[in-house]
């Protein structure tokens, strides 16, 4: 009996700080990323209309835990226009394989990820064989009054389906 009481009591005493610690440690799970919104990126005229993509920074207000950053680069997109077309295509620069930053290879006219050498065609298509399970992630794109806006989203990497992170 005494043994049981001592064990339960001792467990209770130690578990209290442990429980409090676990509670606090799980806090990140309550945090949500900012809702996906359309962000102005550039003028249509600054997107070359020869099918060659061009890289643009994504500028937005950003919150990092307690700090609020106003109008900061938070990522990058590639914008592209087919020759003679007014429709703009937008890709996120984040690799669908494991999230590295995809670079544009001007000489070979393709996208290339430096981490595990996934290659993509200029319109984002997958070049097999490829470590990446899917093509480059396109972003919703809107052109209004000559300005390009892009719906900025993050996607889960490493899986075949393109699924936006909540």
């Amino acid at each position: 009996m005494a043994k049981l009481v001592a064990m339960v009591g001792g467990g209770l005493a130690t578990l209290t700080p442990v429980a409090a610690g676990v509670w606090m440690s799980l806090d990140p799970l309550r945090r949500k990323s900012a809702a996906a919104t359309f962000l102005p990126i550039a003028d249509v005229s600054s997107v070359p209309d020869d099918g060659m993509p061009r890289q643009f920074p994504v500028i937005a207000d950003r919150t990092d835990a307690w700090t609020g950053f106003a109008a900061e680069p938070i990522g990058a997109v590639y914008l592209r226009r087919e020759a003679g077309s007014d429709t703009v295509q937008a890709f996120t620069a984040t690799c669908p394989h494991a999230g590295c930053f995809i670079e544009l290879d001007q000489r070979d006219r393709c996208f290339r990820c430096p981490c595990h050498n996934s290659s993509f065609t200029l319109d984002g298509g997958i070049v097999s064989p490829s470590p990446s399970p899917r093509a480059m992630d396109t972003l919703e794109c809107e052109v209004r009054d000559g300005r390009v806006s892009v719906k900025w989203e993050n996607f889960y990497s490493g899986i075949e389906a393109k699924e936006a992170r909540p």
């Binding site: 409090a20 606090m24 835990a65």
Partner: peptide, 17 residues
């Protein structure tokens, strides 16, 4: 100060720990 503020006032259970 900012991180302690965050622990104390915004994190779940931060005040308790």
């Amino acid at each position: 100060w900012e991180s302690v503020y965050y622990i104390q006032h915004e994190m779940a259970g931060g005040w308790l720990v």
